[in-house]
């Protein structure tokens, strides 16, 4: 275990101390016009666990996720300071291959954003980018990913129809499938179950529990029950600051900070 600046994680419910996967230290982010979205965030995301990010709207959850795959690089005049490490390597170092990083850290966006292509091509997109041409292999992975995202049964008859014809919830599962298809190491899910019915939500939650055997997962959610159900660890953010981070059980039963307690008991405001 690493000591010093990068401190250890608390043991999880089973008493096992997980390895760190993503670590941030002193991470601050300012958008154009000096709007501070993150303020000295210190967070350690455990490997092969599910970490939930909760907090009021506008507190910086999405901004933080976008630091993990360097999508904020695209935003004009966005200044990031501090450190982010993936498996111990600084991802903001000069020689880092950003596309390679984004392949390892997959992200599902808050708003479903399918390409205006067919359902099949949406899922196959990342594979084609990676140079996979074999029709058999593409078919195989597309089916696997759609099944994993609990969408296969609904679309198997119309794989070559436009993805824009799907309902909002179906689109949300489609973009999950699209990200799963490229098999990243880390999966960032930004409110990916917000537009789903209870059954699909359940399926996605099952999927998340299934995936954590191999993936490191970070989910953003406004649904506290959901966080309690699926997350091993929970981080509570407020106004760009990391207020409290601990195992989900502790956050929900015995939070240290008053702000956390107010938020999870619904007295926040």
């Amino acid at each position: 275990m690493k000591g010093g600046e990068f401190s250890e994680l608390n043991p999880d419910a089973d008493g096992v101390r997980p390895e760190p996967c993503l670590e941030t230290r002193n991470l601050s982010l300012r958008y154009a016009g000096n709007r501070r979205a993150l303020n000295k965030v210190r967070l350690t995301i455990p490997r092969q666990r599910v970490t939930a990010l909760i907090g009021p709207s506008g507190c910086g959850k999405t901004s933080l996720l976008r630091c993990f795959n360097r999508l904020n690089d695209l935003v004009d005049d966005c200044v990031i300071t501090g450190r982010v490490r993936l498996e111990g390597k600084n991802i903001y170092a000069a020689k880092v291959d950003v596309t390679e990083l984004r392949r390892r850290v997959g992200m599902v966006f808050q708003k479903p954003n399918p390409f205006p292509k067919s359902i099949y091509e949406n899922v196959a997109f990342g594979l084609r980018i990676r140079g996979i041409k074999s029709r058999r292999r593409l078919d195989e992975i597309v089916q696997e990913s759609l099944s994993a995202a609990a969408l296969w049964d609904e679309v198997k008859g119309r794989l070559h129809k436009s993805a824009l014809e799907l309902s909002g919830g179906q689109q949300q599962r489609l973009v999950i499938a699209r990200t799963l298809a490229v098999a990243p190491e880390v999966l960032l899910l930004d409110e990916s179950a917000s537009a789903l019915d209870p059954i699909s939500t359940l399926k996605i939650e099952e999927l998340i529990s299934e995936l954590k055997k191999n993936y490191t997962i970070v989910i953003v959610t406004h649904n506290l029950q959901q966080a309690a159900r699926v997350a091993d660890y929970t981080a509570f953010m407020d106004m760009g600051e990391m207020v409290e981070f601990d195992t989900t059980a502790r956050i929900f039963t015995n939070p240290v900070k008053r702000r956390t307690e107010e938020y999870i008991t619904g007295r926040y405001g």
Binding site: L71, R102, R103, K111, P116, F125, G126, R130, V175, R178
Partner: peptide, 12 residues
């Protein structure tokens, strides 16, 4: 922009 980001996030 969301479509560009989707593509970039997939490693394009």
């Amino acid at each position: 922009a969301s479509l560009r980001e989707a593509s970039l996030a997939l490693g394009a």
